[in-house]
């Protein structure tokens, strides 16, 4: 028993397919989430984001108009974004490594490849709560650190931290 108060969360679910949206909403409700916003397009998602400032976004990739990647880039870098750090969990049928990299490079926090499973959804949600990634700002990227999150057993050099220190000097 984790004792998480999921009832305190506001989650935005974005998918152009009504069945998939309903499935994700049902899973989140069973976890105890009460405030769930639904968007059937990237445009609608952006409007809801600006109005309600959700705590987590579950986002489909392929949508007509603004795609999931467009939305996540807007979340991270648009001057009108309500929260550039909001965790984004991308839910997609794409499984090829190039696509995973593309999503990571747009600034997502977690990736779920369809088919959707309850355990994966819970594990990704717990991951954004318990193991948030540090953020990185470079000339060409702003978003969660794209390297694998820190392993407490790792004893090797902290190259990125060293680079950051050098850059700060």
């Amino acid at each position: 028993m984790s004792g998480y108060r999921f009832d305190r969360l506001k989650i935005l679910v974005v998918d152009d397919n009504v069945h998939m949206r309903k499935l994700v909403v049902t899973i989140l409700q069973a976890f105890g989430v009460i405030q769930i916003f639904e968007a059937e397009s990237g445009e609608r998602a952006w409007a809801i984001l600006r109005e309600f400032n959700p705590d987590v976004v579950v986002l489909d990739w392929e949508m007509e108009g603004l795609s999931g990647l467009d939305v996540v880039k807007m979340i991270r870098t648009d001057p009108q974004t309500p929260n550039p750090f909001v965790p984004v969990i991308m839910l997609t049928g794409h499984t090829h490594i190039d696509r995973v990299r593309q999503a990571r490079d747009a600034g997502i926090n977690e990736f779920i490849a369809k088919p959707v499973s309850v355990k994966t959804m819970m594990s990704r949600l717990m991951s954004v709560i318990e193991n948030p990634r540090p953020f990185v700002r470079t000339k060409s990227y702003f978003g969660p650190c794209r390297r694998r999150r820190g392993n407490p057993e790792y004893r090797g050099p902290e190259r990125r931290a060293e680079k950051a220190a050098q850059a700060a000097e």
């Binding site: 108060r5 705590d55 750090f85 470079t138 850059a167």
Partner: peptide, 14 residues
């Protein structure tokens, strides 16, 4: 490269 850890508002909330 600027690397920083934003406050964990999610954890504080749940």
């Amino acid at each position: 490269i600027e690397l920083f850890m934003p406050p964990n508002m999610l954890k504080a909330k749940v």
